[in-house]
């Protein structure tokens, strides 16, 4: 049986959605203590027993944050890949996450800012500036630079920013205490108000994305051909990268710098569809995949080193590195 692309995308979306719902339930269920469905239900509907409060005030927020951050990072990765025509692009590998984290650290340790909007503002500023710098540098590499080179620039900038962050933290012990946990990346025990920031940014970008989705699709062609069919290539690319940076900033503010999600989720979505669907459909599938992977990774993080918690970054690296290697080995992939 062959499905039309639209039908197959719809089926996949339903499948992903059911998987995500199941994973959400599992995420509420599994942990240091496992809760039966009754407790979970009462927790969600306002029960007042300890267990029920734990479900509502700990398990539910971390699950929601995992979903929002996962979807944001996944979409950010997809947009970067489309905008740069480079299947290896991802906010973690390209330094955007490190930039947001560094800016937040500077905000806290130099200016003493720790309010919600301030954290969000610094994260956005850092993400935008770093993304701009990385892509300005890759432009200097010339039109023939391979997609690998862009990755190298991003990784190097990320390493440098990580070193600077580390120095700042060592010098400023209060910042260290506040930020060390956040910097290690994860979905648990996060400020819930940040969830609204993340959701807001995600919604904003989605609205904007509808406007430029057609142009982003056209970026699959080479620049000259895209220009030939009437697309303002440079403008589309800038807008897209800006949107990707905003998404990454929101995710970093919520969950700290998390690598590899933006790489894994888009490729998962593309694997699920027979042919590459239109950009908006692909974006939807990617967000679902990202949310699913994030929730699953979060569950895994609770389990593998129980009673401790593994940093989500480490879990995702162990999933993501094999994906990265497989992508590197893929012959004849859409090269940039």
């Amino acid at each position: 049986m062959t499905l039309s692309p639209a039908r197959s995308s719809r089926t996949m979306a339903l499948l992903l959605l059911s998987a995500l719902l199941a994973a959400m339930v599992a995420s509420l269920h599994v942990g240091l203590r496992t809760y039966d469905p009754d407790t979970i239900w009462r927790g969600l509907t306002g029960g007042i027993e300890t267990d029920e409060i734990i479900v509502r005030s700990l398990r539910l927020p971390r699950t929601l944050i995992a979903i929002t951050a996962g979807a944001s990072l996944a979409l950010s990765g997809l947009i970067m890949q489309a905008a740069t025509r480079n299947p290896l692009a991802e906010p973690g590998l390209l330094g955007t996450n490190a930039g947001a984290a560094f800016a937040v650290t500077v905000g806290l340790s130099v200016f003493g800012y720790s309010g919600l909007l301030q954290v969000g503002g610094f994260a956005i500023l850092g993400a935008l500036v770093t993304t701009a710098v990385v892509f300005a540098l890759t432009l200097r590499l010339g039109p023939n630079a391979g997609r690998a080179t862009i990755l190298l620039v991003g990784v190097t900038i990320a390493a440098m920013l990580a070193s600077l962050t580390q120095i700042l933290l060592l010098v400023d012990e209060t910042a260290l205490e506040t930020l060390l946990f956040w910097l290690s990346g994860g979905f648990a025990d996060r400020d819930l108000r940040l969830l609204w920031l993340g959701c807001g940014l995600l919604g904003l970008v989605l609205v904007g994305l509808v406007a430029i989705a057609g142009s982003i699709d056209a970026l699959q062609l080479d620049d000259a051909s895209a220009r030939g069919i009437g697309v303002d290539v440079m403008r589309t690319r800038m807008l897209a990268l800006g949107a990707a940076a905003l998404l990454a900033a929101g995710a970093v503010a919520m969950a700290g710098p998390v690598m590899f999600l933006g790489l894994v989720a888009p490729h998962m979505a593309m694997r699920l569809t027979r042919r590459r669907p239109a950009f908006l459909t692909l974006a939807g599938l990617t967000m679902l995949s990202g949310a699913l992977v994030a929730v699953l990774a979060d569950i895994l993080a609770r389990l593998i080193v129980a009673p401790g918690e593994a940093p989500i970054g480490a879990v995702l690296a162990i999933v993501g590195v094999p994906v990265l290697i497989a992508l590197l080995r893929k012959r004849g992939a859409r090269a940039a």
Partner: peptide, 27 residues
């Protein structure tokens, strides 16, 4: 590597493996 043994390839694999090793160290 099916895509050839260019010098950049080694670096890319190195970066990927370094990330893996870092994650394992954390765990």
């Amino acid at each position: 590597d099916p895509r050839g043994r260019g010098p950049l390839r080694l670096i890319l694999y190195g970066i990927a493996l370094a990330a893996l090793a870092k994650a394992a160290v954390t765990l």
